[in-house]
């Protein structure tokens, strides 16, 4: 089975959306502060969000892994300006999901490498990835792909019990 990695089009939407929703539910497992919206609302918001990204190729990158017409992986990154730092632009990966049975065979790594190439074309010399702090699988994955911890994001509820 061949898997083709390419930029997403609007035709990919229903399947692509499903993968993003899976990712959000996975993230919710790690922290109550990542609890997702009710299903129908979540779906609506996510659809709008992906649509924007697919349509604006200068500011976003949406990659899909296409296995004979079936979308088995998705990666979405934002191209952001870094006001104070050099390099001045970063590709910021927020959504990255591969279907379970396509994992552990290097597909994720191939997608990251392809994303890095395309983000560089869009002027981003740094790639950043965001994921739940307790997601050890993601920690291992990115470490193996030569990423290192750069910033910490700590959170708590504003009102304490």
């Amino acid at each position: 089975m061949s898997v083709n990695i390419r930029e997403a089009t609007m035709d990919d939407m229903p399947q692509l959306l499903d993968l993003v929703l899976r990712l959000k539910r996975l993230n919710a497992e790690f922290d109550p502060l990542l609890k997702t919206l009710p299903d129908d609302e979540l779906r609506k918001v996510a659809e709008e969000y992906i649509k924007t990204a697919i349509e604006d190729r200068a500011r976003y990158l949406v990659l899909v892994a296409d296995a004979d017409g079936k979308i088995v992986g998705v990666l979405k990154a934002d191209v952001r300006n870094r006001i104070f730092y050099v390099p001045r632009k970063e590709g910021y990966i927020i959504e990255f999901y591969v279907m379970p049975e396509y994992r552990r065979r290097g597909l994720g790594r191939t997608m990251i490498d392809e994303a890095a190439r395309l983000l560089r074309e869009r002027g981003a010399d740094v790639i950043v990835a965001e994921f739940p702090a307790l997601n050890q699988i993601a920690v291992n994955f990115y470490s193996k792909a030569d990423f290192r911890p750069l910033l910490y994001i700590y959170a708590r509820e504003s009102q304490q019990p």
């Binding site: 899976r22 539910r25 996975l26 497992e29 279907m99 379970p100 049975e101 699988i137």
Partner: peptide
């Protein structure tokens, strides 16, 4: 099966069941 919605939860909590699902 490999595409069941609860598969990621299984991956985190029950790697053996996850493995069999695949």
């Amino acid at each position: 099966h490999a595409e069941r919605e609860d598969l990621d939860k299984l991956m985190l909590e029950h790697p053996w069941k996850y493995d069999l699902a695949l």
